[in-house]
Design a protein around this nucleic acid. Structure first.
Length: 603
RNA sequence: GGUUCCGUAGCUCAGCUGGAUAGAGCAACAGCCUUCUAAGCUGUGGGUCCCAGGUUCGAAUCCUGGCGGAAUCACCA
């Protein structure tokens, strides 16, 4: 048992002995002592003063005496008001460093500790889920980074994770791009234009919308139609719908073009994903799942869990849930978004029997997932309760929401270009890479640029909307990814200088060391890492990790500024500091890894 | 209008299941490189934690009601 547990045990026992009544479970609260007080752990004694029938100070002193007496690790204590501040022995902290230095998995649940393969039910995490008609933008970037990081987080906490992507490859949107390409494309391909496939297809989507706008304007003028009606009546729109009908009917020519253009998009997405550093264990395509959704709905209809209206459309009655009824199949038998999601949930359950199905999807779809759960419940699906919507906030620009129509979307590829360019400029200004090869430079700028971007996005609480200002480019100083990466590189530099042989040897440094304030602070923060991973995984909040690892880096830099490591004349002390530095670097590496951010050896 | 989420320094954000005097970064100003990487460190100024009640020994945190903002309430996805 860890020290917190043992302290809590002694406290509980002694209170019970003395007052004849045990404190309630949540009443024994142990927390880190605040920096401005002496001590390591603090017990809040207010909850027991009534039981003990003594003043808070007396109660605290009583418990403090007992702890010092019973536990070797508790060396001394002081009492401030109702707060009992406990100081643990130097040896306790030194032992912690000695035990964990050199462990590459520090803070993570080791793969060996995980149950046998196949015996544990996995968590399926769906993220990204792009439409195939346009390239990825900043909103998708937040989604991808969150999804990937949450997957790492769950894995780091010992869960088995399956990362899946659900590609929305069918529907009217792709037909629009197809139509514009057929009409205006003159056989253009990614090869012939040198454009990324997703960008090319996106261009045709934009082309469609602009041509459609012209037609709509014309119709509104000529026929005096309202905008909505004009959109419906526009020839291009009708053609797009016709294309969709032909696709659903399996028309060879249409399917051929559909496959061709989707193929281009996938190549483009793959490049973007790779560059972003995210990946998937399994890719689902909506074109494969929507039919299963249809079947599931029809099956539900047969079992009278759903009902059919006179026009033939199929609905779920959600009156009991105080929600409006939800359409699941149109009168013409075609499916809607919800139908498709019923199908994918079903398929996913077949494929993995997951304990939990996480959907990383923006908060604009809160209602959708609420309804999805209710409908699955109605259909008696056992996995209805397994669905968890990890709802995240929008990325806003200073002008407000990104709008493709107003050309204010921030393209993912361009953004990464800019981040890498900034990384290059900053690094060259600082003159840090003179002895790097071209390949090393390229790699480093990628690593730093992406690190800055990822950290910037992940440090914000997922559920909150966040602001991105393209004018002020993302910072590289202060609470940023590069600052943390830099701290890691700094430590690695020291460790390199020390040399491998010495590092191996120092792992059991002598114990007889008096700890300095900055050293102790750093140790205590690192000590928290495993607990932080656990909590972050439970909350599915990478932000928790991001803010934590920043604290680690900040504290290391203070320590580094105040104390020498290799130049420390006391050999034992030098050895210890080397270990502390090594464990700090490992903590930073592992924490950043959970965010999907890599750290450099040199920068 | 109903539902959900958000509101903390000039700006961007932390603040864990209620705990001590509310913290960082940016921006501003002032310092620190003959010593292991200055993308660093130190200091100064900057707060009605949206407002009002309530619960509690104790509330930025929990509850109720306002105010402000966002999302959603589709036979779009």
């Amino acid at each position: 048992m860890n020290i917190e547990g043992r302290i809590a045990e002694v406290v509980t026992q002694s209170i019970e002995e003395l007052s004849g009544q045990a404190p309630k479970l949540g009443q024994v609260v142990l927390q880190r002592t605040r920096k401005d007080f002496e001590g390591d752990l603090t017990l809040v004694v207010f909850p027991f003063v009534k039981l003990m029938r003594r003043s808070p100070e007396e109660t605290a002193r009583f418990i403090g005496d007992l702890l010092v007496e019973k536990l070797d690790e508790v060396e001394r204590f002081n009492v401030v008001k109702g707060f009992l501040n406990l100081s643990l022995s130097n040896n306790y902290w030194l032992e912690f460093i000695r035990k964990n230095t050199g462990d590459p998995d520090f803070g993570l649940v080791k793969p060996s500790a995980m149950p046998e393969k196949g015996t544990e039910k996995p968590v399926v995490v769906e993220y990204s889920s792009p439409n195939t008609n346009k390239p990825l933008h900043l909103g998708h970037v937040r989604n991808n980074l969150l999804g990937y990081s949450v997957s790492c987080l769950l894995q780091g906490a010992g869960r088995k994770v399956v990362k899946v992507n659900l590609v929305n490859d069918r529907g009217i949107h792709i037909c629009k791009s197809m139509l514009a390409w057929m009409r205006f494309g003159r056989g253009e391909t990614p090869e012939s234009t040198g454009k990324k496939g997703d960008q090319l297809v996106g261009d045709y989507y934009v082309r469609f919308e602009s041509e459609l706008r012209d037609q709509v304007r014309q119709l509104m003028e000529d026929e005096q139609l309202g905008e909505e009606e004009a959109r419906r009546e526009a020839p291009l729109m009708k053609e797009a719908q016709e294309l969709l009908r032909r696709w659903e009917a399996g028309d060879d020519e249409v399917v051929k073009i559909w496959k061709l253009m989707n193929g281009w998009v996938y190549e483009g997405f793959d490049a973007t994903y790779k560059r972003m550093g995210v990946d998937f264990d399994k890719i689902y395509y909506e074109s494969d799942t929507y039919l299963l959704g249809k079947d599931t709905v029809l099956d539900g209809l047969q079992r009278k869990a759903l009902y059919r209206k006179e026009d033939g459309s199929v609905w779920a009655d959600l009156q009991d849930e105080k929600l409006d009824d939800k359409l699941l199949l149109r009168a013409d038998g075609t499916s809607v978004y919800m139908t498709q999601d019923i199908g994918t949930a079903q398929l996913r359950y077949y494929d993995y029997q997951p304990e939990l199905m996480v959907y990383v999807v923006g908060n604009e779809q809160n209602h959708h997932f609420n309804v999805l759960k209710k409908v699955l419940h109605k259909l008696d699906k056992p996995y209805a309760e397994a669905i968890y919507h990890l709802s995240y906030g929008m990325v806003e620009l200073p002008q407000g929401k990104m709008k493709s129509r107003e050309g204010t979307v921030v393209d993912a590829d361009e953004l990464m270009d800019e981040m890498e360019a900034t990384a290059r400029r900053m690094t060259e200004e600082l003159g840090k890479t003179q002895d790097f090869s071209d390949a090393e430079k390229k790699e480093l700028y990628h690593l730093i640029g992406l690190g800055a971007l990822k950290y910037f996005i992940l440090k914000v609480d997922p559920k909150k909307n966040m602001l991105f200002n393209p004018e002020e480019s993302i910072d590289f100083n202060g609470n940023t990814g590069p600052f943390i990466q830099y701290t890691h590189a700094r430590i690695r530099s020291v460790l390199r200088t020390a040399g491998k042989e010495r590092l191996m040897r120092v792992h059991d440094f002598s114990a007889d060391i008096e700890l300095q304030e900055k050293e102790k602070q750093l140790i205590k923060t690192i000590y928290d890492f495993p607990g932080v991973v656990k909590e972050a995984a439970e909350e599915m909040s990478p932000a928790r990790i991001a803010n934590y690892v920043y604290e680690v880096a900040r504290e290391f830099n203070q320590f580094y500024h105040d104390h020498s490591i290799l130049n420390e004349p006391d050999k034992q002390l030098s050895d210890f500091r080397l270990c502390l530095s090594e464990l700090t670097a490992q903590t930073i590496r592992n924490a950043m890894g959970l965010l999907g951010i890599r750290v450099p050896e040199r920068m």
